[in-house]
Computed example of a mutant assay.
Amino acid sequence: MHDPSFLLLFALGLILTGCVSGFLAGLLGVGGGIVVVPVLYIVLAAFDVESDLIPFIAVGTSLATIIPTSIQSFRAHHARGSVDTALLKWWGPFVAVGVVLGVTIAAWANGEFLTLVFAAVALLVAGYMLFSPEGAHVAPRLPGRPIQALLATIIGTISSLMGIGGGTLTVPVLSLASYPVRRAVGTASVVGLIIAVPGALGFVVNGWGKSDLPPFSLGHVNLAGFVLIAASSMFFAPLGARTAHALEPKWLRRLFGVFLAVTSIKMMT
């Protein structure tokens, strides 16, 4: 049993996590999960949660917090006309299929697998953002619809396993096809919502009835973490979106890459 001062610090840490993740959700279209997941690893370990449960609770809770943050981020980007609704109509169903696949894989995986997926993919994307030449692309436009459907499915699968909102993968995939970065970030905010809703529900189901879950848990979603992080993050997403429109695209790429690299190295150590 922890004393009140420790619980207060724990709550303040979650609130601060929400502020940072909300800002990054609006700035980079990452849904905040890339921040929430590693921080929850730390705070859950501090509360002596069983080590193999930590990755599942971190991912499930992160997906839940992405829901309100993505809504706020979408509204801010949509007001600036940086959301590609036509693309989303095609990608959306396939992203959702990918989420179902990812949640199914998570039901059979262990905690080390989820950690490895998170760290490896984050480092791969960081390398692309930091070291690929400015404006680098592999195609002058988006590929045909069958390839887009495959890409959207992969994005949904991996993102649901990582507990992220989709921007981590959506932004670089679109950028490789010569897609404007600001429009990619705005569109990614909606992809995050498509991932977060079924993903969070899936982790609730996967963890339902398990023993040794921390207090206030609904399956693998911790409600205390969800409320505190979501409540603070939703106020900072619009600020991030406004900042994104004030920065040059190259700085968005560099910020995105540095943040992912640091996060990945932290997860591996």
Rank of each mutant, 00 (worst) to 15 (best):
H2F: 15
S5Q: 13
F10M: 04
F10T: 03
G13R: 06
G13N: 00
L14K: 00
G18K: 04
G18T: 08
G22M: 03
G22L: 07
F23V: 00
L24D: 11
G26N: 06
L27Q: 01
L27N: 03
L27W: 10
V30H: 01
G33R: 06
V35L: 11
A46G: 07
S51N: 12
L53G: 04
I54T: 05
I54N: 10
P55F: 13
F56L: 02
I57C: 02
T61I: 10
A64I: 01
S70Q: 09
F74H: 09
F74K: 06
H77S: 07
H77V: 02
A79N: 06
A79I: 01
R80M: 10
G81N: 01
S82M: 10
A86H: 14
G92Q: 04
G92L: 13
V95I: 15
A96L: 14
V97A: 12
G98I: 08
L101W: 04
L116V: 14
L116I: 13
V117H: 03
V117Q: 05
V121F: 11
S132F: 08
P133T: 02
E134N: 11
E134L: 11
A136G: 02
H137Q: 07
H137M: 01
P143M: 05
P143E: 10
P143Q: 05
I147H: 05
A152K: 01
T153Y: 00
S160F: 00
L161C: 09
L161A: 02
M162G: 08
G167K: 00
L169D: 03
L169M: 15
L169H: 08
L176Q: 13
S178Q: 12
R182C: 00
R182Y: 02
R183C: 04
G192T: 11
V197E: 11
L201M: 15
G202H: 12
V204W: 11
V205I: 10
N206D: 15
N206G: 10
G207W: 12
G207S: 12
D212R: 14
L213K: 10
L218D: 08
G219W: 08
H220D: 12
H220A: 13
H220W: 15
V221H: 11
F226D: 02
V227M: 08
L228K: 01
A231W: 06
S232G: 06
A237Q: 04
P238A: 01
L239N: 02
L239R: 12
G240Y: 05
R242P: 01
T243R: 04
T243H: 05
A244L: 08
H245T: 00
L247S: 00
L247C: 02
L247K: 03
E248L: 13
K250I: 12
G257M: 04
L260F: 10
V262K: 05
S264G: 14
I265P: 00
M267D: 00
